[in-house]
Amino acid sequence: MDPGVLAQYAFNGLMLGVIYAMVAVGFTLFFGVLDVIQFAHGDVVMAGAFVALATYLALHGLGVAVPGLVVIVVACAAALAMALLGALIARYLVLPLRAAPAFNTLLITLMLGSILRELVRLFYPNGSNPQPFPRLLPTASVNLGNFTLRLDTTILLVVGLATIFVVNLVVRRTRLGLAIRAVAQDSETARVMGIDFQRIVLVTFAIGSALAGIAGVVYGLYYNEVNFDIGLLLGVIGFSAAVVGGLGSIYGAIIGGFLFAALQTIGSVALPVSSAYNNVFAFAVVIILMTWKPTGLIAEPTSERV
């Protein structure tokens, strides 16, 4: 195959992988502190994209047109709004169900996801239809044979990776991260050590959701279009990536995200059968992977307590 085309596949796959990884990291963080799955996470990404869009339109209405400034304001607005939403979800939907079986959290967040989706569809102007997302980044591009390297996509790739890196740094290297890891490892002991459990949970949900908000902005800037129903599939893929990588591990989530993007790319173009089978292929591989590594590629470091 032509190396330029191959590079193009790889680059597109990387971009897709970054978006998946950003979503997956959220899943894995939430699972870490509370052992629950926040199934509305994909819809939080969607909500983040719509907050960004609304912010952009508001700025546009006010006449603010400095491109760099607009991007930063828009991204911050999405991240902050989603951080708040994430903390609210944790406080009012997830924590109250702590005593119940973990799967009940799944149902309540699933329903929250459909509420978010319907809210955007019904109350965002013309929300049933795809919305154009503005091109806020410079669109210069270089052609290297069959490979088109676009500046905006490159920026998004770098920003996406950097955001994940920062989150990882926060979790690994700060006092806050230490507390998060302590709660993740053993919430009882962490509490005994004087860690405010509820605060840590809320902060973790805020961080994960802010990441989802930025993922929403990256999604919007990359595809230049957002629709109210992108959340469910993003959520499923993000969840799958987090689980394949190994729940609770940030590196696992990143690996899972890129793996999923790779599977989809291969399924679309490299299989001898119709590209429509790409989901069949991707998920069949997931089943095989899970059989091979039942607790994910990077396994949770747990020991059985009998």
Binding site: N12, G13, L233, Q264, T265, S268, V269, S275, A276, N279
Partner: peptide, 16 residues
Amino acid sequence: FGVGADQQDFTAILTK
């Protein structure tokens, strides 16, 4: 090419 009705990313197919 057949694509899913909720598919988001078509860059792989479009590169082809």
